[in-house]
């Protein structure tokens, strides 16, 4: 564990807590894409298949349970909770996110570190996570006034993988045989997808004006 990865995990945790805070306290998911949340639930379900077979550390298992539990409960909240579901704008959240599953799965079958079920599912989760934010970014472009919590949620989500890239650079230089091109490239693609959001997010923060993504 290094400071970059810990910071990345804490940032990821913070993003989940901000979203849960928003949904649980003000009972609203305005501006939040259910499709992105469903993709994240699939990402964690396919990545943490080894949660009961490979024990890495208490921290690792605990965080996996938190990410699994929070992602599925957020999907449940938006789909089932009588108050929250009313604030979900399904007419705007129209990205065909299921179309992302097959290409990611096929790519995982073709490009992976080892052709085993767990490894292919792990690779699939990396490719899917890289594109899972797309429905949310599309929805943000359509959302007139993005509320602060939603903006902070997306910012933290983008920042966490950026911190992981620093972690991978650090591990590459400190652990001789540590080379994993697949998470590195998908993590880089994932972070680059946030580039324009980061730009407008900092602009709105610098000029102290409402966050607004151009359509």
């Amino acid at each position: 564990m290094n400071i970059f990865r810990l910071a990345g995990d804490m940032t990821h945790l913070a993003s989940v807590l901000v979203l849960l805070l928003k949904i649980h306290t003000i009972k609203s998911c305005a501006g939040i894409s259910l499709k992105t949340q469903e993709l994240f639930a699939i990402v964690f379900a396919s990545r943490y298949l080894d949660i009961f077979t490979d024990f890495i550390s208490l921290y690792n298992t605990l965080m996996k349970l938190i990410f699994l539990g929070s992602s599925f409960s957020i999907v449940w909240y938006i789909r089932r909770h009588k108050l929250v579901r009313r604030s979900y704008d399904k007419d705007q959240d129209t990205f065909r996110h299921y179309f992302l599953l097959l290409p990611c799965f096929i790519l995982a079958l073709l490009i992976n570190e080892k052709f085993t079920f767990k490894e292919v599912m792990w690779t699939f989760s990396l490719y899917l996570e890289a594109v899972a934010i797309l429905p949310q970014l599309v929805l943000l472009q359509r959302t007139k006034n993005i509320d602060n919590l939603t903006g902070q949620y997306v910012f933290l989500l983008g920042a966490y993988r950026g911190l992981y890239i620093l972690n991978w650079i650090y591990r590459y230089f400190t652990e001789p045989h540590y080379v994993h091109w697949i998470p590195w490239i998908s993590g880089l693609v994932q972070t680059l997808l946030y580039a324009d959001f980061f730009y407008y997010y900092f602009e709105s923060w610098k000029n102290n004006k409402k966050l607004q993504l151009p359509a």
Binding site: R5, D9, H12, D50, D54, I56, N60, M63, K64, F67, W122, Y164, N167, P183
Partner: peptide, 10 residues
């Protein structure tokens, strides 16, 4: 070996 086998990152 263990390290190589399983992925230690979230």
């Amino acid at each position: 070996k263990k390290e190589a086998e399983s992925h230690d990152e979230l």
